[in-house]
C-alpha cells in the first residue's frame, strides 16, 4: 500500500491556479524531501494531504484512504508540524499537550507519561510547567514537534521543522527522523535548507509553479545535471541564474 498517492491534483484560489496537475506516489517508510521556491505550492500540497483544505479536484489518498471521504480517519493517522505555527502561549507545554491529546481522545495518563518523556528527551523537562510566553523560538518548535507525533501517527508532515532550532537540536531531530523511518513511519518533509534535505531524504521532489519538475534520489537528480550540490540543481531547475546581478542592483538601490 502506498502511504501517499496523489493523482491529477489541482487547486485554485479564485482564478489563480496554485497546483496544476500534481502526481506523486510515496511508499511507506520513505523520507520525502519536498522542495521548491517560495509560493510554488508546497504548503498547499501538504495542507490538502492532511485534510485542512477539502476543496480541490483530483484524487488524493493517504494510507489508502481518500482524503475527502475519510477526513477524521486520516487526521488520526497523520501528524503535522506547520511552519512558524502559533501555540496557546499562556499554557505550559504539558497543558498544551494535554489539551491536544484530549482532542485526539487519548487517555490522560498516557498523554502525561508520553509528553513528560518526550519533553525530557528534548531537554524541556524543567520547563514543562512554565508558560510558553517565555519560550524561545527553538523551544516552541520542540513543543510543536512533540505535538505532531504525540498520537503516534503513521505519516508525518513537517514544514520547515528545523527553523529556530539550535545545532544540537538539529542533530537530534535529524537522528529522530531516521529512527522514525526505521520504525516504518513515512515522513513528508518540506524545507529550504538544501544540505539537510540532501542528506536525510530518500527521495527528493521538486515543485515549481504548481507542477512537479523533478522526482528522484539525490544521485538520480545529480546524474541528470552536471553540477554538484542540491542547491545548484535547485537553482538551475527553478530558473534563477541572475542572483549576482540582482544582488548588485539591490545595493545600488539602497545607496540611492
Amino acid at each position: 500500500m502506498k502511504a501517499i498517492k496523489i493523482s491529477n491534483l489541482q487547486k485554485a484560489y479564485g482564478s489563480a491556479l496554485v497546483l496544476k496537475d500534481v502526481n506523486l506516489e510515496v511508499d511507506s517508510g520513505e523520507i520525502i524531501g519536498y522542495i521548491g521556491p517560495n509560493g510554488a505550492g508546497k504548503s498547499t500540497t501538504i495542507k490538502i494531504l492532511i485534510g485542512m483544505i477539502p476543496d480541490y479536484t483530483g484524487n488524493v489518498e493517504v494510507m489508502g484512504l481518500d482524503v475527502k471521504a475519510n477526513p477524521l480517519e486520516i487526521k488520526r493517522l497523520i501528524g503535522y508540524v506547520p511552519e512558524n505555527a502559533s501555540l496557546y502561549e499562556t499554557l505550559s507545554p504539558m497543558e498544551y499537550l494535554r489539551f491536544l491529546g484530549s482532542l485526539y481522545q487519548l487517555e490522560t495518563d498516557q498523554i502525561e507519561e508520553k509528553a513528560t518523556e518526550l519533553l525530557r528527551l528534548f531537554a524541556l523537562y524543567d520547563q514543562r510547567d512554565d508558560r510558553m510566553t517565555t519560550f524561545s523560538k527553538g523551544m516552541k518548535q520542540k513543543v510543536l514537534l512533540i505535538s505532531g507525533i504525540l498520537h503516534n501517527p503513521e505519516v508525518i508532515f513537517l514544514d520547515e521543522p528545523l527553523s529556530g532550532l539550535d545545532a544540537n537540536a538539529v542533530i537530534l531531530v535529524k537522528e529522530i527522523l531516521s529512527q522514525l523511518k526505521h520504525a516504518g513511519k513515512t515522513i513528508f518533509y518540506s524545507s529550504h535548507i538544501m544540505d539537510v534535505v540532501e542528506k536525510i531524504s530518500d527521495r527528493i521532489v521538486l515543485i515549481n509553479k504548481g507542477t512537479i519538475i523533478a522526482n528522484g534520489t539525490f544521485d538520480e537528480l545529480k546524474s541528470q545535471r552536471e553540477t554538484g550540490s542540491l542547491e545548484q540543481i535547485f537553482n538551475q531547475l527553478t530558473g534563477n541564474n541572475e542572483h549576482v546581478q540582482l544582488a548588485e542592483e539591490f545595493i545600488q538601490v539602497m545607496n540611492r
Binding site: I50, M52, P71, L72, E73, K75, R76, Y80, P82, A85, S86, L87, Y88, E89, L100, L103, Y104, Q105, S147
Partner: peptide
C-alpha cells in the same frame, strides 16, 4: 492563530 489545531485534530 494557534487555532489551526482545531482543523488538524480529528
Amino acid at each position: 492563530k494557534a487555532a489551526w489545531l482545531y482543523e488538524l485534530a480529528p
